[in-house]
Simulated assay, not measured.
Amino acid sequence: METSKETSSNLVKRYQRYLKLEKGHPENTLDAYLRDLDKLLNYFQGEGKSPLEAELEDIEHFAATVRDLGIGARSLARILSGVRQFYRYLVLDGYIKNDPTELLESPKQSQHLPEVLSTAEVDQIQQAIDLSKWEGHRNKAIIEVLFSCGLRVSELTQLKLSHLYIDEQFVRVMGKGSKERLVPISPRALDELGYWFIDRNQMKIKEGEEDYVFLNRRGAHLTRTMILIMLKQYAKEAGIEKTISPHTLRHSFATALLEGGANLRAIQAMLGHESIATTEIYTHIDTTTLRKEILEHHPRNIRYREEHKL
C-alpha cells in the first residue's frame, strides 16, 4: 500500500482509471469529477497539506473557500459530491483508513440561511442533559459557550484554560489561520464553566492535555465529531426537529444579537470572519465596544441580569 508520499498526479491517474473502468462513468461525467477534484488539490497545495492527511475540518474549510468565491449552493453540492466520491475511493483502495467526508454536511439548496435556534430551544436542549452524569455539566457548558460566544466548533475544541480571562470576562480565541481574537464571555457561560471545572478538577488528565478546557472521559481534549454527535442526541431528546450542528449555535448567536439590536459590524467582528473586505471595517472597533454589544443585547445576558437583579 502506498503512503502519503504518493503524488497527487499518480492519485489522479488511478482515480480516473477507477471512475472509468470500475464505475463506468461517461466522459463528460468523468471530466466534471476531475475538474472538481482539481479544485480540491489546488486548495491543499495552497495549504501545504496532502489530501491524504485531510480531516473533516479541512474539507469544511475548502467548502467555505469555494463558497466565498461566489459558487452557488447547487454547484457547491455537486463539488462536494465529487469530493465524497474521491475519499470513498481512497478508503476503498487503502490510502486512508477513515473517510473525512463522512460527517460532511451538504449545503442546503432550498434556503439561504442555516437553521436558527431560539433561546427557548437552546434551553430545551440543555434541559435534556442529565447533570447527574459526569459529563453533564461539561456538555451544558459546551452548549452555553457555543451559543453565548458564537465560537466555531474547532475553536471550542482548541480552547485552553490559559485563554480564559475570567476576571475580565474575555476569551482569547484561536481562529482560522491561527488568527487570534478576543471574545467577551457572558456571566451565564462563566457560571456553567465553573460547574464543569468542579468535575474537571477531579479527573485524571492525560499528559499534554492539561490546558484544554473541555476533556473526554479519558482526560484528552474533545473532537469536533464528539461534539456534533452529542448535540444532535440532546436535540433529539429535547424534541427539536430542526437539523442542527454546532454551527447552528454559532448562527443562532449572531441572529439573536442582530434581532436584539446589536451593531452588525460588532457581530461580524465577534465571529472572526477572515475576508479582508470584511475585516477592514472592524479594525477600529475596540474590545470595550464589542463587550458592551454582547452583554447588552444577547438574550442570555438580559435574562441573567433579570434573574440576578443586576
Rank of each mutant, 00 (worst) to 15 (best):
R74D: 06
V83M: 06
N28C: 03
D36R: 07
Y87K: 09
S75Y: 08
L40C: 08
S50N: 09
S118K: 01
L37F: 10
V66K: 06
V91C: 14
A54W: 08
K23Q: 10
K108N: 10
E105D: 02
L56D: 08
K108R: 09
Y95G: 04
L76R: 10
R17Y: 12
L104I: 12
L117I: 02
T101L: 13
S118F: 02
F62K: 10
D36Q: 07
S106P: 00
Q85G: 11
E105A: 11
P51G: 10
T65G: 09
S8R: 04
R84C: 02
I59P: 11
K13G: 00
E22C: 07
L37D: 01
D93N: 09
G46P: 01
G72R: 08
E102D: 09
S106T: 12
R78W: 06
R67Q: 14
A64M: 03
I71C: 06
L19M: 11
H25N: 05
K23P: 00
R17D: 14
L90T: 04
F62Q: 10
A77M: 08
E6I: 15
V66A: 08
Y95D: 07
L113G: 03
Q45S: 15
E6K: 15
Q45P: 01
D38E: 15
R17I: 12
V12C: 00
R35V: 12
R17A: 15
S75T: 15
L56T: 15
A77P: 02
L92P: 00
D68Y: 01
G72E: 08
K23M: 06
L37K: 09
E6G: 01
T29Y: 03
E22P: 03
R88F: 00
S81Q: 07
K23F: 01
H61P: 00
S110L: 03
T29L: 10
L117G: 01
V83Q: 04
V83E: 07
V91K: 14
Q111I: 10
N10A: 02
D68T: 10
L30M: 07
Y89G: 01
S8L: 05
R84L: 04
L40N: 06
I59Q: 14
Y15R: 07
Q111A: 13
Q85A: 15
R78G: 07
G48Q: 03
K13D: 12
Y15K: 07
T65L: 02
L11M: 15
A73V: 11
G48W: 01
V66T: 07
E57W: 04
E57P: 00
L34W: 05
L90G: 01
L19T: 06
Q16S: 15
N28R: 14
E57A: 14
K49I: 07
L11W: 03
L30K: 00
